[in-house]
Design a protein around this nucleic acid. Sequence first.
DNA 1: CGTCTATTTGAATGTACTCAAAAGCGGTGG
DNA 2: CCACCGCTTTTGAGTACATTCAAATAGACG
Lengths: 194, 194
Amino acid sequence: MTDFDLLRQHVAQYVPITDVEFEQFTALFHPKKIKKKDFLLREGEICKYEAFVIKGCFRIYYSDDKGDAQILYFAVESWWATDIDSFTNQRPSLLNIEALEDSEVLVINKADKDRLYETVPKVEKMFRIMNQKSLVTFQRRVISSLGKTADKRYLEFIEKYPALEQRLSQQQLAAYLGISHEFLSKIRKKLSGK
Amino acid sequence: MTDFDLLRQHVAQYVPITDVEFEQFTALFHPKKIKKKDFLLREGEICKYEAFVIKGCFRIYYSDDKGDAQILYFAVESWWATDIDSFTNQRPSLLNIEALEDSEVLVINKADKDRLYETVPKVEKMFRIMNQKSLVTFQRRVISSLGKTADKRYLEFIEKYPALEQRLSQQQLAAYLGISHEFLSKIRKKLSGK
DNA sequence: CGTCTATTTGAATGTACTCAAAAGCGGTGG
DNA sequence: CCACCGCTTTTGAGTACATTCAAATAGACG
């Protein structure tokens, strides 16, 4: 039951929720285990689940023509892993979602989520606020990816997500920052020499 | 009254709405005219209004240490111009919103918008979907700004917003793409020679 | 017509990439 | 416990993409 505690704690951040409402909410989620290197979603598939991460780590990424990955974000404990566009519109996904560690999630499908919006109106508010917060995060990311050099973006990342840096390989981090892993290595060397 | 027609058409895109609900909705909006080069919001101020553009064009941008602007997006007819973070949390803004043309907007303030969420629950859904859509747009923008070269981003822009290109100066477009205006000029030259 | 701003062009520079090779590191099987 | 394998990280050389600065040109507008 501690799995659902994490979800409850997460929900409570956004809206006050009663026991009954939380019951209705969680009733539609199912636990799922994903092994390291397995995929929750592959490019071209329709995103069946919205997944709340209980344990582990995922990369949500786009794979370009040359096969290089641009990582949109990492989802660790208490984050959601999903392709919003593919999930809400039930259309083929452009994104991949892969477990970087053995992981556990709680998933909900589209029909159940739609039901949730109808039966528990508060859920609407919760996701409105969540989307709003993510939107601000991505707006800021656009600003730094357009205007800042790679070393500044790297420093920004380790300041914002200090715990994550330990957990990720340099290759993954480089793909998030939008630089080659060789160049990230050079940046780290330069910065450590200070 | 045609001002409100544009807003109604916009709202109807997201949720079906009755005449009565629309009345309640628009009752809290006020028309406002902004002259070219005037600001709807300046960095450091608290964003008082969420503005729906009836006519004209705005740039929503961040100004870095050197004074260079990174343009987050352009708001033309039927777009919203606001700093979501500053507006919803009533905290000082990092962004500037400036009219690039003589413009007309419909504005709503924070207290009235909160009232709206309470009295017209449908509004919650509408903004949830709107935020979701914007989120997807910004996610895609992160992907292209990290992974694509400037000429591809330029081509992407003119394909996605053909009407906008006519309306904007190259300097503004360059600031949106995250490149210098000199380099954009060179890109255009190169592309026209084909 | 003149003034102010936007665009173009070129040269020099800086930031980041590609490719190739070497070094480091962790796990597995003998 | 060591040797080997595969994977990640480091390093260097050469190249490509994009910037800065300066100057010339073109447009817009009173």
